[in-house]
């Protein structure tokens, strides 16, 4: 277990280092300068600005300085916001993203679970086909299309929910719903397949044969065992949520990390782009690692290397 954990950690660090390096050198290739109206600055001003942000040093040196700072969780200064550090920008933006992301995951998983269970228990019935269709719809329709249509119909036309902005809990409903569509679809499909498989297992037949009630069989044997592989969905779900927040926060004007990212791309705020990229990547890598480990803990049939 420990060896396995260490080797996963090693991979994680190598991947992170590659991402850091790639991001850093990608940024050097970017067109444009980080300063507003560089043609209006005098030679002297440009020099002093470059010096202030350390852009006058050779690239290799800049790279190592950047690495060193990273180790101290210092992501540098934003080019766009005078005097603000990247980590403080990320810190101030993370709340709304985390909130809608969490709400989407909780609601999406619950709804997906319900849909998938109905589907599996009423296999090949009208209900099954309906929920399969809903799941395909949720996987296929891009989240921003769904979000835009929802904003138009629920927000603008019917005015049931606030169409955008961030002024209280009711403002989180639509972004969370739009994000959760993908979660519902993924979880529902997954649970359906898993449950259908578990329903055919010998231990379910045994449980029925020894006279357990249908409810006990479903709850204690089928659902519990079908849930284990759902943990593996956490990786793809995180990516989906990340991708989703980029566009959905833009649509609903949520002051989150995704909105900041798209904003920074527009104004060439390199250090913020890099910081958020690293943040997203680390989050993703961390989740994948946790999933790997959790999966081993939950299902004893899967032995982790090093444990034998």
């Amino acid at each position: 277990m420990r060896n396995y954990f260490l080797s996963r950690l090693g991979y994680m660090l190598v991947t992170l280092l590659i991402i850091v390096t790639a991001t850093f050198f990608f940024m050097q290739l970017l067109p444009g300068t980080p300063f507003n109206n560089p043609e209006k600055l005098t030679e002297q001003q440009l020099l002093s600005l470059n010096e202030k942000y350390g852009l006058d040093k050779p690239i290799a040196l800049q790279y190592f300085i950047y690495l060193g700072n990273l180790l101290q969780f210092d992501l540098g200064l934003s080019f766009q916001y005078e005097g603000r550090t990247v980590e403080s920008i990320i810190g101030s933006r993370i709340g709304p993203s985390a909130l809608i992301g969490l709400q989407a995951v909780v609601f999406g998983t619950a709804a997906g679970l319900l849909l998938g269970m109905i589907s599996a228990l009423k296999h090949n019935s009208f209900l099954d086909y309906t929920s399969v269709f809903i799941a395909v719809l949720g996987m296929s329709v891009p989240s921003f299309v769904f979000a835009a249509l929802m904003q138009y119909y629920l927000g603008v036309k019917l005015q049931w929910l606030p169409a955008a902005l961030w002024r209280g809990w009711e403002y989180t409903i639509m972004p969370s719903l739009a994000l959760s569509v993908m979660v519902i679809a993924t979880v529902a499909r997954f649970i359906r397949t898993e449950m259908l498989e578990v329903l055919g297992q010998d231990y379910v037949v045994t449980a029925r044969a020894k006279g357990l009630t249908e409810k006990a069989v479903i709850v204690k044997h089928v659902v519990r065992n079908a849930l284990i592989p759902v943990v593996t969905m956490l990786g793809p779900l995180t990516v989906g949520i990340m991708t989703g927040t980029l566009v959905i926060e833009k649509i609903f004007a949520v002051p989150g990390l995704g909105e900041q990212f798209t904003l920074s791309i527009m104004v060439n705020d390199y250090s913020v782009i890099m910081g958020i990229t690293l943040f997203y990547s680390s989050l993703f890598i961390l989740v994948v690692m946790i999933v790997d480990i959790l999966y081993g803990v939950l299902d004893p049939r899967i032995s982790l290397k090093g444990e034998g």
């Binding site: 990608f26 782009i273 990547s281 993703f284």
Partner: peptide, 13 residues
């Protein structure tokens, strides 16, 4: 391990 979304965005930039 690298989220492809990030790579795609950086590349297009």
């Amino acid at each position: 391990g690298i989220p492809n979304l990030i790579v795609i965005i950086l590349f297009i930039l």
